[in-house]
C-alpha cells in the first residue's frame, strides 16, 4: 500500500509539469496582456515605458524561456510575485483567501452529505412513496433554480424584509472589537446564507446518486440472502445495503477535493466574499500570469491528490480492492 502511494505521488510530477505547460500556453494565447491592460488607457504611457515594464516582468523573453524560469521557481515552491499594482507574493495572496473559501465549501459539502445521503437511502428503500416523490421534486428544484437568483431572493427576505441576517461580506464593521464568541457568532451569521445556498444547489446530484446506488444494491442477491437469514429489515438496510451503497461516495469525495479550494465567482460576487473565486477572476481579467498559474497549479495538484485519496480511501473501505 505504501509503495502504491509513493509511486502514485511520483507519477504526479510529470503530470503536473504537463498540466502547467498547457495552462501556461493557454494563458498567453488569450488576447491582451498585463502590460497593455495596465497602459492602454493611460495617455502618458510611452512605448519606452511599456518596453521597460515588459522587461521588468520578463515578458520580453521568448515564451519557452519564460516557462522555464517559471518552472525553475516552482521547483523551490516559489510562486513569484503578482503583476497587480500591490506586487505582493502570489503565495501570500492565495494563502489569505483560502480559509474563507475552504470554510464555506467544507461546510456546504458536509451539509450536502448530511442531508443527501439519508434522503437518497430513504427514497430508495421507500421507492415510489410520497417522501420519495416529494424529495425528488425538492432536490431538482434546488438543482434547477439559478443560484444567483435564489440568493438575491433570500437576501431580500432575510436581510432586508426580516433583517435577521447580514447580506454581504464575512464580518460586521465592528468585527475586530468582538470577543471570541462574538466573532464566531458574527462569522456564522455571515456564512449561513452562502453555505445553505451552496448546499441546496448541490443536493440533487448527491441524493440522486445515493438513491440509484441504493436501488442497485437492494436488488442484489446478497440482500435477499440477508433477509432469508431472518434479519430485520432495518439491519438489512443499514448493515448490508448501506455499506455497499455508500462506498462510491468516497470516490466523489476524493474528486471534490479541488472544488473545496476553488470558489464560485458568482457566489462570492453576490455575497461580497473575498474568496478564491474572486481572486482568480481578478487575476484573469488583469492577465496576472503568476497569480493565474499559481492558482491553476494548486488546483491541478489538488485534483491529482484527490484522485489518489479516493483510490486509497476506496481501498481501505472495500475488501475486494484492499486485498485484490
Amino acid at each position: 500500500m505504501l509503495r502504491f502511494i509513493v509511486r502514485r505521488l511520483l507519477l504526479t510530477i510529470p503530470l503536473l509539469v504537463g498540466i502547467s505547460l498547457i495552462s501556461f500556453l493557454m494563458i498567453h494565447l488569450a488576447p491582451g496582456g498585463p502590460i497593455s491592460i495596465a497602459t492602454d488607457l493611460n495617455p502618458r504611457a510611452t512605448a519606452d515605458a511599456r518596453a521597460r515594464l515588459e522587461k521588468y516582468y520578463g515578458l520580453d523573453r521568448p515564451l519557452h524561456v519564460q516557462y522555464a524560469r517559471w518552472l525553475e521557481r516552482m521547483a523551490t515552491l516559489d510562486f513569484g510575485d503578482s503583476f497587480s499594482p500591490d506586487g505582493r507574493p502570489v503565495a501570500q495572496k492565495i494563502r489569505e483567501r483560502i480559509p474563507i473559501t475552504l470554510t464555506i465549501n467544507v461546510l456546504s459539502m458536509g451539509l450536502i452529505l448530511l442531508v443527501a445521503i439519508p434522503i437518497g437511502i430513504y427514497s430508495a428503500v421507500h421507492r415510489g412513496s410520497l417522501f420519495d416523490r416529494a424529495s425528488t421534486v425538492f432536490v431538482f428544484t434546488g438543482f434547477s433554480i439559478p443560484t444567483f437568483w435564489l440568493a438575491l431572493l433570500l437576501m431580500i427576505l432575510f436581510g432586508v424584509k426580516l433583517g435577521w441576517l447580514p447580506i454581504s461580506g464575512i464580518g460586521s464593521l465592528d468585527y475586530q472589537s468582538l470577543g471570541l464568541a462574538g466573532k464566531i457568532a458574527d462569522r456564522a451569521r455571515h456564512l449561513l446564507l452562502p453555505v445553505l445556498l451552496a448546499g441546496f444547489s448541490g443536493l440533487a446530484g448527491m441524493s440522486r446518486y445515493m438513491r440509484s446506488n441504493m436501488l442497485e444494491v437492494i436488488r442484489q442477491d446478497y440482500i435477499a440472502s440477508a433477509r432469508a437469514k431472518g434479519l430485520p429489515e432495518r439491519k438489512v438496510v443499514y448493515r448490508h445495503a448501506m455499506r455497499n451503497a455508500v462506498l462510491p461516495v468516497i470516490t466523489i469525495l476524493g474528486l471534490s477535493v479541488p472544488d473545496l479550494l476553488g470558489g464560485s465567482v458568482i457566489f462570492e460576487t453576490i455575497f461580497a466574499i473575498p474568496g478564491m473565486g474572486q481572486l482568480f477572476y481578478q487575476g484573469v481579467m488583469s492577465r496576472d500570469y503568476p497569480l493565474i498559474m499559481g492558482i491553476l497549479t494548486i488546483g491541478a495538484f489538488l485534483t491529482l491528490l484527490g484522485n489518489l485519496l479516493a483510490d486509497v480511501g476506496y481501498a481501505l473501505a472495500d475488501p475486494r480492492i484492499r486485498q485484490g
Binding site: 442477491d221 446478497y222 440472502s225 433477509r227 437469514k229 431472518g230 430485520p232 455499506r243 473501505a317
Partner: peptide, 26 residues
C-alpha cells in the same frame, strides 16, 4: 416481525448464485 423469526430458523434457504449471494464487504 414474526416472519423474521421464521426465516433462517424454522425455514431457511440457499440460493442459486453463490458468487453473488454473499455480501462483498463483510
Amino acid at each position: 416481525k414474526r416472519m423474521c423469526e421464521v426465516r433462517g430458523k424454522a425455514v431457511s434457504m440457499i440460493f442459486q448464485e453463490p458468487m453473488t449471494s454473499l455480501n462483498p464487504v463483510l
